[in-house]
Nucleic acid binder design. Structure first.
Lengths: 195, 195, 195, 195
DNA sequence: GATGAATGAGCTTTCATTCAT
DNA sequence: AATGAATGAAAGCTCATTCAT
């Protein structure tokens, strides 16, 4: 029962993630989501108490998945430069294969403060992702590979740079496929942060 | 006559900029804007044909102002490292003194694709800003100060990194005032791009 | 369920028919219609996607009802002159008992081309009525009772003449009750068309 | 002065006639009319006190022009059958060459009762046209060419039949040019009314 | 758990008309 | 006579959410 419910919750989140990312939070209606799932509006409310809460659950869920992948990188026994490369790779590969996931950060989370203010204050709802970046950075500073500096200066670089590139991709202004930029950008980040 | 009208247009843009940035595009209504200006809804439509067009004019206007300031930096006879520092300074100072201007990029332009798709395709409406970054980069590559690489890799760094920091500021998670990060971030950008 | 919904659809059409006919399409608002039905505006939109579509469904519905009655006349084994008399009778009786139905043709369908252009091109939405007139005419020509001529010359006579009389009735200029004219007009039509 | 004013009044009526006929009364705005005339909205109100009054003046003006032409037919020394033919000819030629004039009856006058109720009760505003039809009919009855019957039965035939044909033309359903129908329809009308 | 009809406040936009200049 | 900025009420339509079944 709870299991079945959890599965349905997840499928709702996946569909909503797609619609929110593609069409925007305000342009996506609850009936839209229900219709795409083949379920009734009323029933959808049995799984998520409100549209805002649904949006919040999605950002947590997405951060968790992304954080999970970075966690695996953090556990590898490779250099900081290689880790950076892998993280960029993960991010851009996700942007290519599941663009909704990354776009959700940019087009939904970033810009609908009202929606996330009650329940996602600070960065609680994206901690799945931020925590792993923090761990990566701390480790690499400890090992002497990266220069010691304010964490947010480093975090802003990761988050902003990667997000910015995906935004440019979304705008259709990148002359190359997003993959193409992995090496350049990994190097830039490493150069920016190295000891 | 036309002068008076131009002034009123500008005052409308300034008020709308503030409201859109603070409350979000969709949460700000035309009556809200008109009320804050002490004018009638109908009359506002004499100045801007639609809410979307108003939003588009604002992004152009804002990009122009920001671009203007960077243009002045570009004309100075100083090193690339110093230029980067000045650009970061301009950006963060603006973020501090007129936060609406920067937040508009993040919370309105970045995330409401539908609003800007008809009339602001590609980056036309932000060319005031992007053009100056491009000029800075080309000059510095020509002079041998910065490594030659794909423009977008460099542009994404500027735009994403700076934007990302302002986002963190807006979320209230930065332990320090935004000014505090100017030096760190300028250095990181320079390290990332230097020859 | 679907049955209940169909009934409600019909009651909406009947109320809208009345209001559109009496007050004009543009002077009748959706809130007017909803109020008269004791239902909410939002719910009305669950039954008809737009005001234009509501207007289109009404003309189809009305044509169907009128066509149905003429179909019965067509199936009778009587002379063309008698059929004409019966058709005029049906038309004028309807104009007397359910004036909205006839006035809808004159005051809504005839004159709001924009409303019917998407979805009712040509005469598709009034085919319920036109088809029966066509059948009547073809039969009577085949039997040699009416002169063979361009169908539209004959159709325009029926539609225009009958409609014109009802228009005059609506303007309040007819000195007599509409019934009074049945004989005269039937004779005129028959004389016009007879072989 | 008054002369100049009269000329301008007429030019306003001609432009408004066109726009009302083509786009409908409610879809045509006063600014639309003013713009097409290259004059200001405020000034237009110096010539016509309201949109409704403008519409009323147009119907009078149009009826007068049409009536004028029929008056000339009435004065000719020809048979009733020939007069009918000429009247149909005038009507259809006008429908072809100045379709706005005829369409104004169908699409504006016929269907916006509210607009004409104050100032055009009964048929006062179209008396220019109706009077001439009445004269034609009375003369032809007096001379024994047409059967004596209720005037409205005859008038409805003229007005409705001719209007109906032009409506069909406007709908684009007539397989032939409107000219083509002149002979058929003249004959039908004559047959309907002849003694 | 599941349905979907119902609510109603709220949105963007329009437009006849006025009036200071 | 001429201008056009200004008004503000009203329109069509949307949509998160509820609730009787």
């Amino acid at each position: 029962m709870t299991d079945k419910k959890a599965l349905k919750r997840e499928s709702i989140m996946q569909v909503a993630l797609q619609l929110f990312s593609n069409n925007g939070f305000h342009k996506t209606t609850i009936p839209d989501i229900a219709a795409k799932l083949g379920m009734s509006v009323g029933n959808l409310y049995n799984y998520f108490k409100s549209k805002d809460i649904l949006a919040q659950e999605i950002i947590k869920y997405t951060s968790e998945i992304l954080g999970e992948q970075i966690r695996e990188v953090n556990m590898l026994d490779i250099s900081a430069a290689e880790k950076i490369h892998k993280i960029v790779e993960i991010y851009f590969t996700t942007a290519k294969e599941k663009p909704e996931m990354i776009e959700y950060f940019l087009r939904v989370y970033l810009s609908n403060r009202e929606v996330f203010s009650d329940g996602c204050q600070g960065m609680v709802c994206v901690s799945g992702f931020t925590t792993e970046i923090m761990i990566f950075f701390d480790d690499a500073v400890s090992s002497g590979e990266l220069r010691n500096q304010d964490f947010f200066s480093a975090f802003g670089l990761f988050m902003g740079y990667l997000g910015g590139m995906v935004f440019l991709k979304g705008e259709g202004v990148l002359p190359q496929d997003i993959d193409y930029y992995i090496d350049d950008i990994s190097r830039n980040i490493y150069n920016a942060l190295k000891a």
